[in-house]
């Protein structure tokens, strides 16, 4: 599983980097930066799922 991030949908709510700072950072304007690429470990998957479940704009999805 991997993280799919839609920059067009992201409005900088900041929920992802608050909940999973090991996977996400914020740029100078507050938009998300995904820190991992490729296949997620089980531990990363839990954080990524939490971030996706709390994104108000549905900008993050977890994909096979």
């Amino acid at each position: 599983m991997r993280i799919a991030y839609d920059r067009e949908k992201c409005q900088g709510h900041g929920r992802c980097y608050a909940l999973a700072p090991e996977l996400f950072d914020a740029d100078d304007e507050g938009y998300a930066i995904v820190l991992v690429s490729g296949e997620l470990t089980d531990e990363q998957l839990a954080g990524a799922q939490l971030a996706a479940d709390n994104c108000p704009e549905y900008a993050l999805t977890i994909e096979p």
């Binding site: 409005q11 900088g12 709510h13 900041g14 939490l50 479940d53 709390n54 108000p56 704009e57 549905y58």
Partner: peptide
């Protein structure tokens, strides 16, 4: 609550610019 896509700061292009401060 683990799944919480709340709209307290709005949605879309007018998402509250001060949301990080307020939080």
């Amino acid at each position: 609550r683990q799944r919480n896509r709340h709209l307290a700061f709005g949605l879309g292009i007018h998402r509250c610019a001060g949301s990080n401060l307020a939080r």
